[in-house]
Write a protein that binds this DNA or RNA. Structure first.
Length: 844
DNA sequence: CACGCTAGCCCG
DNA sequence: GGGCTAGCGTGC
């Protein structure tokens, strides 16, 4: 006798339960349970949700110890096999639990929780020895209240525990007692968060002669019923009840009467919630390709035809028509019977982008983004899972779209840091996309005007076996227009010449002339987070760390400057250490202040401000952009959300108020981020007939990121930036793992953090890895810290971090994970938390 | 001694 | 994560 068994990952987020548990598959489910099935299983003293990750058979064994799967939650397993495999790969790569990666792949609506049901114990009746009357003859005489509870349950059937305690709030003790002596018993069942949406439909059940007879049978009083039946017969198809009621102006009662007479039926029919149901998308046809587009398109189609699973890095300047290439390649992919995923950063999933895909592919597209409700997201996901759509467009999580035969994954703006999830599991969408494509034999297109250094370097060096993209370039704008001229303004000079305003004279006169000509201006002020930095307004000096080549962060509470990498700290200066000026300040101008200033300088100016404050409401993002498009605003002022993907023909001026903002973040990627942002925003100007102009204001106008952005010179920027990275052993010349530890007690935390580092060094040494990255060794691993985290205390917990820097073919993640586990195990409680961030993007 | 609280334990 | 239990403190 062989027993069918399933290994199940349970939805219990703790380190000890992060492994598969074995369950028996009951005979009744044996046809239905598959890898990827969602099940309810007994776990400890309760029922929890879990996912089947493998099936196996076992010979005769001690069956009494094995528990069976209690319930199967879906007929179609929510996870195809490839996603289960991907989840395992991710949990290893990112040092996180399997359940946390599985959870990414299904909509939140399917995160079921157990409900406790109370019912009358039927044993009494079943045994036949005690009839209902005998129940009350039990030795312990039941009280009046107990009898009341019992009789309620007899009439209602099983109810949830919460329902019962709501009805009898004062009697929880009694209920407990009844459970204890076996009169009541308890069972558990997994319940989903939401239901499939249904609507009521009406259809006639009669036709032809029967219908004639029916119609004739209505008296004068049933005039309305006759009307309804006539209408149903005329239309001849099933209609929604809502539609019938509103068209004929009748009430539900009328229709109900018809149903009672047997001439019609009302049925519940499942429908998909459609977030775009009120929107009409104008269809578009493929545009004629430019020679450059044609070259790139053919390269992609070639891969699709040959199923060679290539990764492409498409470096195309702003306005070069990358999206059109995506659209046409996807069209081809679909025509081959395969499906496509389009990934965009959350911030650029604008209505414009959705419109372009809906316009080309209509109902074949599912859209997934964070603004959808749980139900809407569930339904978009179901469309994919059930094979009703062929294209999925969305942010990060769309990479998990459960398609059957994926042919293509497009990742637009591949350099965007929002592709890295900052919460556990801290995965990078690019790596997951490449892995998923491998599973399906699909092609990947990474597109950007400013590719990340990691991707670009990988394409150039071909040193990484798993990730070596093929570089494709597009250097011409599709419209034939040229890139806008860029003017850098030295704000130190402005100050010297008496201009204390936040607008340089060039930007001021630029805005003025746009107002006169009725053209539009986009203003960028990139102020995210609260970090401030210290700068001298006379000479542009910014306090930086001598060890790490990054700027120091001002800490108001302790009034000192700190390096977020190595822990160096110094008192905040009151005069500039370079030029002795007293104009030392911490910099920080918000969008609101700019808005006020604009109205002062240009009375009557219409400013549309777009930042986190004005776009939090649902649909507000869309409304603001629509207003700007309809020229209800002269200036669009905003944070980086105005830099991406917008295409307005009358925008001829782009102004960057403070190009240095991103530059002064304590992050080795700050130059790269500055270059990317400036290049992106400059690309918003002069995209059509009217020529564009860009004004960049800066206190460090000769910084290479600003100079090369103004020259639209990606290659020179990359050359210079790679030199810096190489000298300091930063990615792409090394890989990083950021380990953050937190505890309520500072001394204990410090001790544990130091322990951790010592342990990790010891392990690395044993492998012969530990050592400085300076020395020429193909495999090297270095550990920096522990130091206090940039945010040293959050929610009453102290935080320390250390940075693991390594290169070569080393499984550093497993090393860190094992060390972290051992460190936590040393304390016999769960008070110490260790977070592991593999390939961190944010170092704060 | 009856009750309440919490630290520790384990889940197939 | 959560539910249960053993062990201990507290209050009449």
């Amino acid at each position: 006798m062989m027993y069918r068994m399933a290994k199940v990952i349970v939805d219990v987020p703790s380190r000890e339960t992060d492994r598969p548990f074995d369950y028996l598959i009951p005979e009744s489910m044996s046809e239905w349970i598959e890898v990827g099935s969602r099940v309810g299983v007994p776990f400890g003293r309760r029922t929890v949700q879990g996912f089947v990750v493998s099936l196996h058979e076992e010979p005769e064994m001690d069956k009494s110890r094995m528990k069976p799967i209690q319930e199967l939650l879906d007929l179609l397993p929510p996870l195809p096999h490839d996603l289960v495999e991907l989840a395992a790969w991710m949990s290893k790569k990112y040092a996180c639990s399997m359940i946390s990666t599985l959870q990414l792949m299904i909509p939140a609506a399917l995160k079921g929780k157990a409900e406790r049901y109370i019912h009358l114990n039927e044993d009494n009746e079943v045994s036949g020895e005690l009839d209902e009357g005998a129940l009350f003859a039990l030795p312990s005489v039941l009280s009046r209240e107990e009898e009341e509870i019992i009789s309620y349950l007899r009439s209602s059937g099983p109810v949830t525990m919460s329902h019962l305690s709501l009805r009898y709030p004062a009697h929880s003790k009694l209920i407990k007692g009844l459970l204890g002596n076996g009169i009541l018993s308890e069972s558990q069942s997994i319940k989903d968060k939401i239901r499939k949406k249904t609507i009521k439909t009406v259809a006639a059940t009669v036709s032809g002669e029967e219908a004639e007879i029916a119609l004739a049978s209505f008296g004068a009083q049933a005039r309305r019923q006759k009307e309804v039946l006539n209408f149903l017969l005329e239309v001849g198809v099933t209609l929604s009840l809502q539609e019938v009621l509103s068209t004929l102006q009748v009430t539900a009662g009328t229709v109900k009467k018809l149903v009672e007479k047997g001439y019609a039926v009302i049925e519940d029919v499942e429908v998909f919630r459609d977030p775009y149901q009120d929107r009409h998308f104008k269809g578009t046809v493929p545009l004629e390709r430019t020679p450059e587009q044609d070259y790139v398109y053919n390269a992609l189609i070639n891969t699709l035809n040959k199923r060679t699973n290539d990764v492409f890095l498409l470096h195309g300047i702003t306005g070069s028509g990358k999206t059109e290439v995506y659209l046409q390649t996807i069209e081809r992919c679909i025509s081959m019977g395969r499906q496509a995923i389009v990934l965009v950063p959350e911030i650029s999933l604008t209505p414009q982008m959705v419109e372009r895909f809906k316009g080309r592919f209509g109902a074949k597209v599912a859209v997934m983004h964070s603004r959808l409700s749980t139900g809407e997201r569930y339904d978009e996901w179901r469309k994919i899972r059930e094979g009703r759509v062929e294209v999925a467009i969305g942010a990060r999580s769309a990479v998990f779209a459960p398609f059957k035969d994926l042919g293509l994954i497009v990742m637009d703006e591949e350099h965007e840091t929002s592709y890295k999830q900052e919460e556990t599991p801290k995965y990078h969408t690019r790596d997951v996309a490449v892995r998923r494509a491998q599973q399906h034999g699909a092609a990947v297109i990474l597109g950007s005007a400013t590719p990340s250094l990691e991707s670009y370097y990988a394409a150039r060096s071909k040193s990484d076996d798993n990730f070596a993209p093929i570089l494709l370039e597009m250097n011409q704008r599709a419209s034939g227009s040229s890139l806008p001229g860029v003017h850098i303004v030295d704000m130190r000079e402005e100050l010297k010449e008496g201009n204390r305003s936040m607008f340089s004279r060039a930007l001021h006169s630029g805005i003025a002339s746009r107002l006169e000509r009725g053209e539009q201006t986009v203003l960028l002020l990139n102020r995210r987070g609260h970090s401030t930095f210290v700068m001298c307004r006379s000479c542009g000096y910014v306090a930086g760390c001598s060890e790490c080549d990054i700027s120091l962060t001002y800490h108001q509470k302790s009034n000192n400057l700190r390096c977020h990498y190595c822990g160096y700290s110094a008192p905040a200066p009151s005069i500039c250490p370079e030029c002795g000026s007293e104009h030392i300040r911490y910099f920080g101008t918000g969008t609101q202040r700019v808005e006020g200033e604009l109205s002062k300088l240009f009375p009557g100016i219409r400013v549309i401000r777009m930042d986190v404050d004005t776009t939090s409401e649902k649909g507000s993002h869309e409304k603001l952009l629509q207003a700007f498009r309809e020229k209800k605003g002269d200036v669009l002022l905003g944070t980086q959300m105005v830099a991406k993907g917008l295409d307005f023909p009358d925008v001829t001026l782009v102004g960057v108020i403070a190009a240095d903002t991103a530059l002064n973040f304590p992050d080795f990627r700050s130059a790269e981020k500055t270059f990317q942002l400036l290049t992106q925003v400059a690309g918003r100007a002069g995209r059509h007939q009217l020529p564009g102009e860009v004004v960049i204001q800066s206190y460090v106008p000769d910084h290479y990121s600003i100079v090369h952005a103004s020259g639209h010179d990606y290659n020179s920027f990359v050359r210079e930036e790679l030199n810096h990275r190489k000298a300091l052993h930063y990615p792409p010349y090394s890989r990083l793992i950021l380990v953050t530890m937190s505890h309520e007690k500072l001394p204990l935390l410090l001790r544990m953090a130091e322990n951790f580092v010592v342990e990790l060094k010891g392990k690395a040494q044993k492998h012969g890895w530990y050592g400085s990255l300076d020395r020429f060794m193909p495999e090297a691993l270095d550990i920096l810290g522990p130091v206090a985290s940039p945010m040293p205390r959050i929610k009453n917990r102290y935080r320390f971090q250390c940075m693991v820097k390594y290169r070569g073919n080393i499984d550093a993640v497993s090393l860190v994970r094992e060390t972290a586990s051992a460190t936590v195990d040393n304390l016999r409680d769960a008070s110490l938390q260790i977070s592991i961030d593999v390939d961190p993007q944010m170092l704060m």
